[in-house]
Design a protein around this nucleic acid. Structure first.
Length: 561
DNA sequence: CTACTGACTTGCCATAACCTTA
DNA sequence: TAAGGTTATGGCAAGTCAGTAG
């Protein structure tokens, strides 16, 4: 028995590091074995049909399936693929197949296009069978038993082999992602639980019983040699509590942020360069919601965050568009998403930036005296648990709360607007939907139609007015009122459509999902829904409601972030 | 300090599932 | 009832950050 007097973040290590006391599961689900192509489907080399060994053929199908994608035309992709492919070939195949451009995958490609077509054209019954099969799988492998509770697993299926794509200009694009064997997989579960059985004829790499970690299984992916894990679904208690804790940390920052801001402003004039750099970096992280920006190796796409910004990523403008001390940012961030922003900054920041870039080449680090580790150490001293990413959570949630407090209408569109403000702050982008132009056009046609209807209704109203004036009667009065109402109703409908149009237009390249799922304290949204009697289903779909069950459960309408 | 590893969160996208409309 | 559009879900890549060894 222990009375909990310390706040979560100061609790002793033992309770902080132990993640469960019992864990039982079925192990990962392995993707089906490779099914060789039918004999009539042929790979051709230099105009001649070649029957490939199963291993070589499988890899060929990976490439063939991707043929419509633009990236198969990239040199890096082709070279990586061809190199890895040749390594898996038999001696004879390797001797024969020497040039990718002589490889003809078109039959294989066509075969898979037809197959996917067939799948699309399946009957309802056939689809039903598949669905049942999937739910059986989910039932068997999709859940674990954690501390006696049945919890959903996030990704119980192992990733199938294929060709690595990566995001942006990734130097490893096209490399072969190998099939994971049971012998590659480490199982984590409790000692006294039923140990999952490896597939027949195989054994696990290892079975361990480590309750200081939350994963159920892990393996090393061969592209970067980094571990991957099977973990719980966000709806689980374990993840939910962690999520709650994250927002509580952000709320503690809210109490502390004034003094932290004062401190980093003082740091701008420090005698020590590293302290000045740190002060400016934290300012960027706070003001612009930049990510920390860990160092990266050159085996991945060239992207940066705050600490890894280079001189070439900023341009300083003494004046720009009637503003003073403007910093123009232009760099690729996480997932190679472009960050482009022109920001007026404090004069002292501007001065410092000038100093930081002095005598440097474009490809030199802007902040050469600091690292994310040092920066986070400083932040942690200001407030326990504080790291760079907490600022993103804090600023995102604060923005949502402020916006919702400002907009009092309680309409979904207002909520989306607030959500959008956050997404813009965090630079959450998406590719414009393929159907965007078309759906926009459809909406505009609808609006046009509505306008015509209004014209018509107005005309009718005018006539009714005249009729009522000429020969007033109960009937004419009623008609007049009816027409007035019709005009009003149509007007409202038009307004709604136009609002929808703006909403959609503004959302064209902005992704709302990421902030909703990862940055916005769900209690803000739950409270807003309660206050305005908006059903929570309008804001959160089923998955989201499951993930935020903890917040839906505990929050009343008075919650403020 | 740096380099490296491991565990966990965050992020965009393709496609499946669903829903509306002609 | 199929076509076409929209939304939900799964997939997996790519970040963050702590810990450890040297």
């Amino acid at each position: 028995f222990r009375v909990q007097t310390l706040p979560l973040w100061e609790e002793g290590k033992s309770s902080d590091t132990q993640k469960w006391s019992s864990l039982e599961h079925k192990g990962p689900y392995f993707p089906p074995e490779y099914e060789p192509l039918p004999d009539n489907i042929c790979f051709n080399y230099d105009g001649q049909p070649v029957k490939l060994s199963p291993v070589t053929e499988e890899i060929a199908t990976f490439y063939a399936k991707m043929l419509d994608h633009e990236y198969t035309s990239k040199e890096v992709f082709q070279n990586n693929f061809f190199c890895d492919w040749r390594e898996e070939m038999t001696k004879e195949e390797r001797k024969l197949i020497k040039t990718l451009s002589k490889c003809d995958f078109s039959q294989i490609h066509k075969y898979f296009v037809e197959k996917s077509e067939e799948r699309k054209n399946m009957t309802k019954e056939e689809k039903q069978v598949l669905k049942e099969e999937a739910s059986r799988l989910m039932e068997e492998y999709g859940y674990c038993l954690l501390d006696g509770h049945r919890e959903k697993i996030g990704n119980f299926k192992l990733e199938p082999p294929g060709l690595f794509r990566g995001r942006g200009e990734h130097p490893k694009m096209g490399k072969l992602k190998k099939r994971i064997q049971p012998e590659d997989v480490t199982i984590n579960c409790s000692q006294d639980s039923k140990i999952p059985a490896p597939p027949a004829g195989h054994r696990w790499k290892r079975v361990q019983h480590d309750n200081t970690v939350t994963w159920l299984a892990s393996w090393l992916e061969n592209i970067h040699g980094r571990p991957k894990y099977i973990m719980l679904n966000p709806s689980s208690k374990l993840k939910g509590e962690k999520d709650w804790q994250k927002y509580e940390t952000a709320r503690r920052l809210k109490m502390k942020v004034d003094s932290i801001r004062k401190q980093y402003r003082r740091d701008w004039t420090s005698r020590e360069m590293k302290i000045r750099q740190r002060g400016v970096a934290i300012y960027f992280i706070d003001k612009l919601a930049l990510r920390a920006g860990n160092e990266k190796d050159d085996e991945s796409a060239d992207t940066v965050g705050c600490c890894s910004l280079r001189v070439e990523h900023i341009t300083l403008h003494r004046r720009l568009d009637a503003q003073e001390h403007v910093v123009e940012f232009d760099f690729l961030g996480k997932d190679s998403i472009r960050y482009y922003n022109k920001v007026p900054v404090e004069k002292q920041v501007f001065k410092n930036l000038k100093l930081f870039i002095k005598h440097k080449d474009p490809e030199d680090d802007l902040f050469d005296r600091i690292t994310t580790v040092k920066l986070n150490k400083t932040l942690n001293e200001s407030m326990p648990g504080l790291t760079a990413k907490v600022f993103r959570t804090f600023n995102a949630s604060t923005t949502l709360q402020d916006q919702l407090n400002k907009l009092t209408t309680g309409k979904i569109l207002s909520y989306n607007r607030a959500n959008r403000a956050v997404a813009i702050l965090c630079n959450h982008q998406r590719a414009a939907p393929k159907t965007f132009e078309r759906s926009m056009q459809l909406l505009q046609e609808k609006i046009q139609k509505k306008k015509e209807q209004i014209e018509e209704a107005k005309k009718e109203l005018k006539e009714a007015k005249k009729a009522h004036k000429d020969a007033p009667s109960d009937k004419s009065k009623k008609l007049l009122e009816k027409k007035e109402k019709a005009v009003q109703r149509l007007g409202e409908q038009l307004k709604k459509l136009q609002l929808q149009e703006t909403d959609r237009e503004e959302n064209k390249v902005i992704a709302l999902g990421t902030s909703k799922l990862n940055y916005l304290d769900p209690r803000i949204s739950v409270a807003w829904c309660k206050k305005h009697q908006v059903p929570i289903e309008k804001i959160y779909n089923k998955t989201q409601r499951d993930k935020f069950a903890w917040a839906i459960d505990m929050t009343d309408e008075n919650f403020q972030f």
